[in-house]
Design a protein around this nucleic acid. Structure first.
Lengths: 343, 343
DNA sequence: TCAGTTTAATTAAACGATTAACCTGACATA
DNA sequence: TATGTCAGGTTAATCGTTTAATTAAACTGA
């Protein structure tokens, strides 16, 4: 690899001059500039970022720590982050914790465990000398001990930071659920069941709150018996479908598209149809929801937007600006054909 | 940030000794080692990889260049690569070309265009001083001008390298298609339609070849009229369904799960069912295929496996070993309920 | 006892770029 | 004439770590 030193020698100038030219500084005659650039072109010189990084103490690199790339929410958030990075001349380095694929779906709410995982990666990021970190959680939860001792500006996404100095960008679970349930109510539904995730999960809690709010706004009495906490997967939706239908609900709010998929399967096997015999809504607007028949009405989480927002926040922090501590990115209802009016 | 120099001063030894201790070299007394390690622990010293990289001329970093992370095939391949990297002490740095999201689904077969895209990223990777590169293509095609002038050991995935020095890992499109069609034939089908991608696409060509082979093996005459080239999306599948059914086929081999999704929609709207009125198979085993009703029989592409294989190949190259030039990773049929026997 | 080896260190030169500080000559200004 | 300013450079230190070369003392064995 050809270095600045060789260029300098060949041109009979100092390395400082070559460096100045490559960095677009003034105080160089057009003649010298042309001579140097010619040699740079001819030799195919490539800047060594490692050397520059060492000297400048800035690597123009953002570290992305993903709890699990396999989690469906992660790649899109990464994409949003990368987009903003690219537009601002930052490179990205990605670390994948493989939380779920490695430990088979253990839900990481255990603080102790989390910290033993996060600390070393952040340390690694410090060793790499990243200028900032975007931490992408796999699901909503409180993160109380994000390691700040390395003094790397960081932003959390999808999880709630418990630390003043580390802002987070999350989805507005509560309001998204409220809007979705209101949509059902607007279609005449009054007895609305909920197929929820785990009871102690933060997503689930917030969405139930949104559900309650929508009922309250419409003057409908909240009946906790209409909520079945099961899990997030298709299999849970399928398993609890019969029990849910027995309650005589006219609509079901599923807290994930997968759960709705389970319900659809049950309906299919029993000769029923969503949007006709019963109304169904999902959550997430995963790719699958567009393939349901009939198409599933659901809530789109703007994951790319979360990534973008988080990275812009980080950019502000890097500029030394004061930033917000918590940004809730709104969700957007996607209307398909799984909801029908009640006469 | 505390450096090796400060540790050295505090312990009254040279930086060389500290470095030797941190790198587990012998020739250090237990006493000195203990003293230094104590200070390292206490101060929370973190190695500076940038400095080490500069000195060692090795960064222990693999560059991953993805044509588009939004492409459904990409994240899983990245995951496979990262897994092997992690197990071997390599970090990864990811560049996202955003081929499709940036240019709205332009299919990058144009060599010229490709090169103008790839060259600068590889150069960037050279500047970052990565030890090797995994290039993740968005779809099967020939890549004829992968830039080799930077002398970075590289492996291509999902696309066919035209360069002896750059091996590639691809899926075995032809055989996967053959197996799938044979499966239909084994169920008694003889008139099998194909909803294919674009005619000039390499995936499509290879899969058609597999289709022909299966027919040939079974002694069925190949009728090109049963193939409709449309595109890869749901909308194409839907649009061409009527035309396909008019041909009187008893089974349809869809070249993507999305196409099959379009066909399913058509069947749904016309009161028909896959696996009952007609047999349908897809390709890719995307998440959606498990949500089709009834479940779609399809072909699983082992994307994580491709990533792993590619990275292991790169590891061999980095060790200076001689490697294969082309590895075809086999696909695996996933049997669900969309295929029925013909009586 | 002494040459030879081993152990436990040190010294100083890299790695490649950046940058603060300095230098030199030309020209302008009062 | 003295002083200041500016263009167009150069010098040399520096970033933090590694490592080849060297040293000095201690030990080994015949």
């Amino acid at each position: 690899m050809v270095t600045i030193k060789e260029i300098a020698k060949e041109c009979g100038v100092s390395t400082a001059t070559v460096s100045n030219i490559l960095n677009g500084k003034k105080n160089v005659s057009d003649e010298t500039r042309a001579k140097v650039m010619a040699v740079v072109e001819r030799t195919g010189y490539t800047l060594n970022y490692v050397a520059r990084g060492l000297r400048r103490q800035k690597t123009q690199t953002i570290g992305i720590i993903a709890e699990d790339i396999g989690q469906f929410t992660t790649p899109e958030m990464i994409e949003g982050v990368m987009e903003v990075c690219e537009d601002n001349g930052y490179k990205t380095i990605v670390q994948n914790l493989r939380f779920y694929s490695r430990w088979n779906d253990i839900w990481f709410d255990n603080e102790e465990m989390c910290n033993t995982m996060i600390y070393p990666v952040v340390q690694e990021m410090a060793a790499i000398q990243v200028d900032g970190i975007i931490y992408i959680a796999g699901h909503a939860r409180k993160i109380s001990k994000y390691p700040t001792q390395f003094n790397i500006p960081s932003v959390l996404t999808y999880a709630y930071s418990q630390d003043e100095s580390v802002p987070s960008v999350v989805i507005d679970d509560e309001d998204a659920a409220r809007v979705m349930v209101k949509y059902l109510i607007d279609h005449g539904h009054r007895k609305i069941g909920v197929l929820a995730g785990e009871q102690d999960n933060l997503h689930a809690k917030l969405r139930v709150r949104g559900y309650q709010k929508a009922l309250y706004d419409a003057g409908i009495l909240y009946n906790p018996d209409l909520i079945i906490y099961a899990g997030w997967g298709k299999e849970f939706g399928y398993r609890e479908s019969a029990k849910m239908l027995e309650k005589g609900v006219t609509a079901v709010f599923c807290m994930s598209d997968q759960i709705a998929g389970g319900l659809y399967q049950y309906l299919f096997e029993h000769g029923m149809q969503a949007g006709k015999d019963i109304s169904v809504v999902g959550f997430d607007n995963q790719v699958i929801s567009d393939y349901f028949l009939p198409g599933l009405t659901t809530t789109k989480i703007d994951l790319v937007g979360i990534g973008r927002t988080a990275m812009n926040l980080l950019l502000d922090k890097l500029d030394g600006k004061e930033t917000e501590k918590l940004i809730k990115v709104p969700c957007k209802p996607i209307k398909r054909q799984s909801v029908c009016k009640i006469k």
